[in-house]
Amino acid sequence: MTSPSSHDKPRCFQDVILRLQNHWAKSGCAILQPYDMEVGAGTFHPATTLRSLGPRPWAAAYVQPSRRPTDGRYGENPNRLQHYYQYQVIIKPSPPDLQELYLDSLRAIGLDPMAHDVRFVEDDWESPTLGAWGLGWEVWCDGMEVSQFTYFQQVAGYDCNPVSGELTYGLERLAMYVLGVEHVMDMPFNDPDSPIPLTYGDIFREAEREYSRWNFEIADAAMLFQHFRDAEAECERIVSAPPEDSAGRHILMAQPAYDQAIKASHLFNLLDARGVISVTERADYIRRVRALTRKCADLFMQTPLGQGVA
């Protein structure tokens, strides 16, 4: 394994990730680990959703495994996966040189903006389930979208103040481009010269097949509906619990409540993939998840983390 450096090219998927980790660590971010729950995108990690609320400064970067059941293609499509990785950076307040920091991260993974055509193309971001929106761009490298760059304006209905800058890299697609690979399953995961070289397919092909079948055909819709209602009820229960515990400590439980909102959101995605939610019901489920997120945010704003720096 060659050590990550900013000039030579990465040779495998994990090298791309390590170089990004290294770059953002040097740029002052806390390098967090993935959130230990099923989410549709890195934005759902509480490190982004909840921490973008309130006045406290924040800087974090992390890899987030993300699940989009409807995108499953049994491991056959060169680009589409129901389980993939996002690299997420969130900095509050957004620093004035965020674009430069971002471009340095591209340099770090071997994309030299003097040799490639890097462009910031208008793309406004919105998440109906999170009740969030922001303005920014999709970043193009030689005509391919490699990242999403957003200045959060609102999250869970709250105006962001200060504003967080959020960067999201679709890791597989970015790495495939850097490494010149045509099919995701052929992409070297570790160094191809390792004693035991592994491709992305060695690790995930079978999983993609299995989850695709489960997502589309086997998942028990009745059970998923029940889980959705359970998560919703538990979230409401946590949110409306009295602020003092049995020993009289003042503890609001915004994060456990938010876990339930995440759960509900993922269950909705599973139901959607299963094809059991009609067009009209769809809007209603989205609204219900948004209402949960909103309640969690309301609670978070009353916790020490949501308040000003003590």
Binding site: P78, N79, P113, M114, A115, H116, D117, R119, C141, D142, G143, M144, Y177
Partner: peptide, 21 residues
């Protein structure tokens, strides 16, 4: 948006790839 040292060969190759997909 750039005059690349290879007269845009790399840029064109990248665009070609995206187009093919």
């Amino acid at each position: 948006n750039i005059e690349a040292p290879d007269d845009g060969a790399l840029i064109l190759a990248g665009n070609q790839r995206v187009l093919a997909a």
